[in-house]
Nucleic acid binder design. Structure first.
Lengths: 192, 192
DNA sequence: AAAATTTGATAACAAATGTTATTGTCTGCC
DNA sequence: GGCAGACAATAACATTTGTTATCAAATTTT
């Protein structure tokens, strides 16, 4: 699990062993709630196998805002950073194998990482990339129709289409399940 | 202009004078293009007075993605960071007084700032805050109707409503000018 | 001050999207 | 194997949103 990180980061063996000791491996079934709306997010999860969604209840409707797959890390990020109640739930979609680390331990690691110029810069770069990604999502809502957003998903995030139930995808696109179903049947007719 | 920054940052007088020397003051009329689609963004602008929008041409339609006002800094951020051609234009809305700094000079400042723990952390925090903001915009498109997004703008960014022509606001909300006009008249009737 | 341009409102009609209900398939579970 | 729940497709109808066109008011330019 950690070998891919290992190679990227110039740390001593002792450091690595210390850090790895902070992580805990768990196996959970599908539809397991990892964080509930209102709680403070204190664990960061890394996905070894499986997939996860972030969602919230909006006037009785289940709205999904993010999907995560293998090797991605998940937390309710603003809650996690600022110790605020999370507005969202975190839940597995598939049976999953996860590694979690407590915020306190991660903070220790981050404090040390920030002193190493390459790691610090790579952290800052990741933050920028994340911001760019969200900007693109945002612009896509201004620019593209639901049909175009769905086509983009197929191209850019096929894992979502293949592994996630359709009603979660619909809310992620900002449309109803009925509408998504219609879009799909139009696409099929167009391609035949 | 810079006194508000001055107080927040523990730098020597010499450093401050060096940094301030990098900035250039300009006054420009409304509808001045500061950056054109396809160019690489090399200047960061800080607004002393006036307002600015970021927009792009989407199949002949003028779509605005961001607004900026006094004391905010503006660049086509991904282009600026990575020296890529900008997908967007930057343009003044009102006659404006701006300060700009060249990317090369800003990079020099940032290199030094990153060595000072408080400044570095405040930089990282700002990056997080920016990401949170974009996440919220993104979620708002999933969660809220155009009417609700417009109401939110009135509450949270009244400057936009007061100072920006309506057709720019419409595209920012992802709707047509006709539709925005209808939403407004419904709001008026509801409140009377 | 007149002319041109920009901005905004509105109407009539078209297209997209939502709502509710029905039906069928699939999956996990006992 | 059968049952319950989750998931997806579709139809009929309602509502929202877009398109195009026209007019009026405000603003800028000459």
């Amino acid at each position: 699990m950690f070998s891919q990180f290992r190679n990227r980061f110039p740390l001593t063996d002792e450091k690595w062993n210390e850090y790895i000791g902070y992580f805990n491996r768990i196996e959970v079934p599908a539809k397991t709630t990892l964080l509930e709306e209102g709680e403070v997010s204190k664990k960061l999860y890394i996905i070894e196998k499986g997939c996860i969604r972030v969602w919230f209840n909006n006037n009785g409707k289940d709205l999904t805002t993010q999907f995560f797959f293998e090797n991605e890390s998940v937390a309710s990020i603003e809650s996690f950073m600022k110790k605020l109640p999370s507005p969202t739930n975190i839940e597995t979609i598939e049976p999953s194998v996860l590694w979690w680390i407590h915020k306190n331990d991660l903070d220790k690691i981050l404090e040390e990482i920030k002193e190493i110029p390459e790691l610090r810069d790579s952290l800052i770069n990741k933050l920028f990339e994340r911001t760019f990604d969200y900007m693109k999502y945002f612009v896509s809502f201004i620019k593209d129709s639901p049909a175009e957003r769905y086509s983009n998903l197929i191209k850019e995030r096929p894992q979502i289409i293949l592994r996630v139930p359709q009603h979660y995808i619909a809310s992620y696109l900002g449309i109803t399940t009925v509408h998504l179903s219609r879009l799909k049947s139009k696409l099929v007719n167009k391609n035949s």
